[in-house]
Design a protein around this nucleic acid. Structure first.
Lengths: 210, 210, 210, 210
DNA sequence: TATGAATGAGAATTCATTCAT
DNA sequence: TATGAATGAATTCTCATTCAT
């Protein structure tokens, strides 16, 4: 007990801001930036409003800190894509699988996407960072892979300036889940979805391609 | 002048709610539901707060009325898709073109999409109606077209339960424009986009399809 | 029809203010002065707010006009008491009966009493007039009767400065009905009440009076 | 000074709601429920509007809390009547004296009566509680005493269903003071009033009772 | 570090009143 | 006479933020 208490004491200090960020995430997701009350965040942690202000100067800064905090896992994804091997097709499908897991399946990233869409106007820096850190690297990765596949003769030549088309079904799945929140949209089956999508992506819709 | 005044008087009454809905659209888009001040909406119309409340009981009802008002054009799109003719491929590409115009290019629908994503939690009925009136009919339309193409031997057999994959690039374009608001994402070129996408969709990525 | 219409037209002008006063009575009784909305009064008449202001300058003046309008019947009561004959006892009991009818049984007078109690602070003139026109004359009447009865040997000598004691049970019945609004207090039986009260008043409580 | 400060800090918290209730009483008495501004209550305490809402959720809840708070002394009166001794006559006169002090002389109870009459429509639960806790027990007490006096041969038989007649002069005194607020009605003399009333109540008006 | 009482600058909403028709 | 759109001042209630403890 003494040992535990010691740990608790020592870690409490480091833990508190994390608890607050977690609570902030839930409340901002639920009500948006303007609609969220700092007191509700505090209640969720089990502390009072004042405590939140011990750690974060303003609601705005808390919001930004929360976004940064929850963006970390996504960062790691980008690293993983570096280590892939196999044909261009293999690596492209692997990336789609990873993105699906990270964007469509993972609630945190999904809700982060909602906040980026909803609160972008108010936090332009957020959007810029989001673009530079997530969107741009992924698009660049996909671009590079496609060019590589084209160069090796594996892929047909397609205009690389539209490569977001390739990841579109994943973002769309995310957005539809965001909108309908598991009520109307059936909980998706990753394997079946990727199977169907990779078949369509690779082979096209036509029975007899030109 | 007398004639004009007559018209103004008589029509002002019918005009006012529309003016308020237009102003509400701009403000809700700019600041979200909770972040918008009714007074700013009134200012935009050039009336006082009180006048807004003459026409709409609460801010929430105003928001809902605004969403309904601006959903009308989208409704009409669904009618147009009924009149299409040609091969399944032709009609599918026509639908994609229409959707592109309506969802990705049209600012109103685009911003409506933002509000649906951002404020869905607070207006669940809105979301349900949105699903029943827009999402479901479009998906059903695409489903039917694909099945028809498959039946006629025009398309390969693909699992129809994922037909939102087909419209995904359009929703993705919309969402990316919403997020980056014409700053990072270059204003897209409809012809080139549809050209690239239809080629990929129809023929697939592989140089030598299975 | 023409005749009726003529009457309607001619009387409409005279009727409108009465209708408004009637509606005002109901609403002021229901919600008090501050709690009543002019629009609710107008709705009750079936006209718009503006119409009320055609006849009454302000809500305050409407209130005062309403009080005056509904005070008239009470005025008439005072006249009737002049015409009474018989012994002092007979006349006193007659007056109590008349007061019972007018104050305790008549809803209008009862609710007027509520308004006098509730809104007196805001309308001091009202209170003064109420005193001079109703309370004072009645008390004076009772005083005179008692003195007459004492002079004639019919009554014992009682201090006439407390003669409101004699009418107290009637005001009390009124007030209790006002408070409990026919829910807790059983609808009173005039005959039984007056019977019981006159017996007590005349003969006292003691089995063997001093 | 240090000691005083310590007390002030610690007790301020417990004191604040009482201060607010006191201020609320004065303002609600002065202007009625609808006419009272929460800000005026706050001003009276020397705090801001917001502070009032720290302690009471709404103006309505504040009103109800205030009524409950000021009803306590009246509650205690009921306890005192239990301890009375002597003949039925003695005890009845004692009760009338206590009621006179509590209802007619005590400004707080008097004004509470005004609020009960004026705002009853808006707070029906309040009225019900008022009936069950105050009116009913007192009437029951008087009923019991009369029956006891009748049983012991001290009183004549009078119909006990009208026993509110016995307390009527006290409520009437209260109401008249409420209406004329010490302007027209002379500040009453308790001894003289009770003397006059007990004589009339016990012996009746007639020189020669039947 | 944590509290929570207090603030005060709003924000939504209400409503008596006006006035052009 | 009657309307009802519009006003604007007032009012309730909210909430981010502060600060003494």
């Amino acid at each position: 007990m003494a040992a535990q208490k010691k740990i608790t004491r020592a870690e409490q200090k480091a833990l508190r801001p994390i608890q607050i960020l977690d609570a902030a995430f839930e409340e901002f997701v639920r009500c948006g930036f303007a609609g969220t009350r700092v007191e509700d965040i505090a209640d969720r942690v089990g502390v009072t409003k004042g405590t939140v202000y011990v750690y974060f100067e303003t609601k705005e800064k808390l919001f930004e800190a929360m976004i940064n905090h929850f963006s970390v896992p996504f960062q790691e994804l980008l690293g993983i894509t570096e280590g892939l091997s196999g044909s261009a097709t293999d690596r492209l499908l692997s990336i789609l699988g990873l993105l699906y897991e990270q964007i469509a399946e993972d609630r945190t990233t999904r809700e982060l996407t909602r906040l980026v869409i909803a609160e972008g106007h108010r936090f332009p820096d957020l959007i810029d960072r989001h673009h530079d850190q997530f969107i741009e690297p992924i698009i660049a990765k996909v671009d590079a892979l496609i060019l590589e596949g084209v160069a090796s003769g594996e892929f047909r030549e397609i205009p690389v300036e539209f490569s977001e088309i390739v990841v579109a079904p994943i973002l769309t799945t995310t957005v539809l889940r965001l909108i309908f929140d598991d009520r109307r949209v059936p909980t998706p089956n990753k394997e079946a979805f990727l199977q169907a999508y990779s078949d369509l992506l690779l082979n096209g819709l036509l029975a007899k391609p030109h």
